[in-house]
């Protein structure tokens, strides 16, 4: 937290600009009915009114920051380190979920290649062991990856914890319930 930070001013101006864009660009271009419309000779509130109210909240909040709170002493800002952290975390999550999504189908394709079979993953998505492949691998990478990110090094302990945690989650979410599908088996 820096005392000379102008984050309130920047945030306030950003909100004002965003609110004006919502009011004068997004709502007119992406809402079919206006603020008020006439249906069967009666006026009713259109779909544009509620988002306009939301934009007015944003506009007043932004103006409040610019006018009343721009000189506040305590103005936390988004640091480069924070951006670096969230970028790295999101990259890791993206990779983990991509692995979670495609491991099962790839494993089935590989098996098909070896056995000259033509089975689809979709048909196997609720059968053992196929249904666990993606979740177990992707989930383990997600947990172990985040632990490694914080510790700054890959540890056996982190990996074991990740494997055990994923196993426990399978025990919690999958084994007791027939109607629950672990990711990504609900929409493959």
């Amino acid at each position: 937290m820096r005392k000379d930070s102008h984050s309130n001013l920047i945030l306030g101006l950003s909100c004002v600009v965003f609110a004006l864009l919502v009011l004068f660009l997004w709502i007119p271009l992406d809402v079919e009915t206006g603020f008020v419309e006439k249906v069967r000779r009666k006026y009713i509130i259109g779909d544009g009114m509620a988002p306009a109210v939301a934009a007015i909240f944003l506009l007043i909040g932004g103006l409040g920051l610019v006018i009343f709170e721009r000189r506040n002493a305590d103005q936390p800002a988004i640091s480069k380190a924070a951006l670096k952290f969230i970028g790295a975390a999101l990259a890791l999550l993206f990779v983990s979920f991509a692995i979670m999504r495609y491991t099962g189908p790839l494993a089935v394709s590989a098996t098909n290649f070896l056995t000259n079979d033509v089975t689809e993953y979709r048909l196997l998505r609720d059968t053992v062991p196929w249904k666990y492949l993606g979740y177990a691998l992707g989930g383990t990478i997600l947990i172990a990856g985040l632990i490694t990110m914080i510790e700054g090094k890959i540890t056996r302990k982190g990996l074991i914890i990740a494997v055990l945690a994923v196993l426990v989650m399978i025990l919690i979410y999958d084994l007791p319930f027939e109607d629950l599908l672990l990711p990504p088996n609900g929409d493959v």
Partner: peptide, 16 residues
């Protein structure tokens, strides 16, 4: 929170 302006922004984003 400590700031009504930020509270209004949070509310506006939630409504939007």
């Amino acid at each position: 929170g400590g700031s009504p302006a930020k509270g209004l922004i949070s509310t506006g984003l939630g409504l939007l």
